[in-house]
């Protein structure tokens, strides 16, 4: 895969791809990248301009300390290894985006600003993320009624041209995604782990090849499950969508609750919650906290009305637009 030089530099500086955790030098995290990005802007430079520069040059041009310039220079010597790594990933059907890429989702830049992930790995269609859609979230273990509702919504999204955004986990995530794909719709899953493994699934692979599905992850494609990974991706699901729907949530525990309250706090997208007789405790509490009720059964005739219904009921919660520099 051929990356622009800014992206090449960012992958070398910010991704742990092919990097040892043992070494003294660390790759850049969000926290320490943002100050460096500001130095770059001040010097009127792009990340790609750093390629081929010595530590001494970097120090003087960016006006940074010796230690930091040596860190940058050290990391930028990973060119060959990164090219080898990226070729392997590309052969597997996995591409990489950095915040310096034009195709990087605008919504991440706008809504997450400094905390927009620096590097993303993905597979499948590159243009789905950011298309109009609904984030559907919920627990892993649910009863038949709740499962049926997830499938109904997934199917309605397919019929009404909405992308189903989800987290690719067992349970609600999978039910809604499969329903969307079965209904000839599209879906984007933001994974917390195991991208490399997920793409080997027969059905997932087919949907990826047919460009009906996109998988995204801010973690290394080979990364295994971690709670941090599962939690960390929540905001990346919400911020890609136009609306979010919580189908089932525990109260005050679990990833669904954490993600939903995070969204309420940040006001990224209007938050709907499935509202029914037997809804879980978490759903009730989210409604109390100001989430919007989505009655089960749905009060609409046919899926064509769904988009309008979402719009009407979303109480004009809009993400604040903002202009950001490409890589900051």
């Amino acid at each position: 895969m051929k990356l622009a030089s800014d992206s090449q530099a960012m992958v070398m500086l910010c991704s742990r791809l092919g990097f040892s955790t043992q070494t003294n030098v660390k790759t850049y995290t969000l926290k320490d990248w943002n100050p460096l990005a500001r130095k770059l802007i001040d010097a009127n430079m792009h990340p790609g301009d750093l390629l081929g520069l010595s530590a001494v040059d970097i120090k003087s041009q960016l006006d940074i300390g010796l230690e930091e310039s040596e860190r940058v220079s050290f990391l930028l010597e990973r060119g060959t290894a990164i090219a080898i790594e990226l070729d392997r990933l590309s052969s597997l059907g996995i591409w990489v985006w950095t915040r310096a890429d034009k195709v990087y989702p605008v919504r991440y830049r706008q809504r997450l600003k400094d905390s927009a992930p620096l590097v993303l790995f993905g597979s499948g269609d590159k243009y789905l993320p950011g298309q109009p859609g609904l984030a559907i979230v919920g627990s892993r273990n649910v009863d038949v009624e709740i499962k049926a509702f997830a499938e109904e919504i997934g199917n309605i999204c397919a019929n009404s041209g909405l992308v189903v955004y989800s987290g690719g986990a067992r349970g609600i995530d999978t039910y809604s995604m499969i329903a969307a794909l079965d209904g000839r719709g599209t879906s984007v899953s933001v994974l917390g782990h195991s991208l490399e493994k997920v793409i080997r699934d027969i059905d997932i692979r087919m949907a990826l090849e047919n460009e009906n599905l996109t998988l995204l992850t801010p973690y290394l494609p080979s990364a295994g499950f971690s709670v941090g990974g599962a939690m960390g991706r929540n905001k990346l699901i919400y911020t890609l969508a136009d609306y979010a729907l919580v189908i089932s949530s525990d109260f005050n525990k679990g990833g669904t609750w954490a993600g939903a309250t995070e969204n309420l706090k940040n006001g990224w997208v209007p938050l709907f919650v499935m509202d029914s007789m037997h809804m879980p405790e978490g759903n009730k509490m989210l409604l109390e906290k100001g989430a919007i009720s989505m009655p089960n059964p749905l009060p609409i005739e046919g899926s064509k009305e769904f988009r309008n219904w979402l719009k009407r009921n979303s109480k004009k919660i809009q993400p604040p637009p903002s202009q950001m520099s490409l890589f900051s």
Partner: peptide, 17 residues
């Protein structure tokens, strides 16, 4: 294109070739 080489060997030199 070998997994061991990429996952275990290259990181030993932090990918610096």
């Amino acid at each position: 294109n070998n997994q061991h080489f990429l996952d275990e060997v290259l990181p030993l030199v932090s990918g610096r070739i």
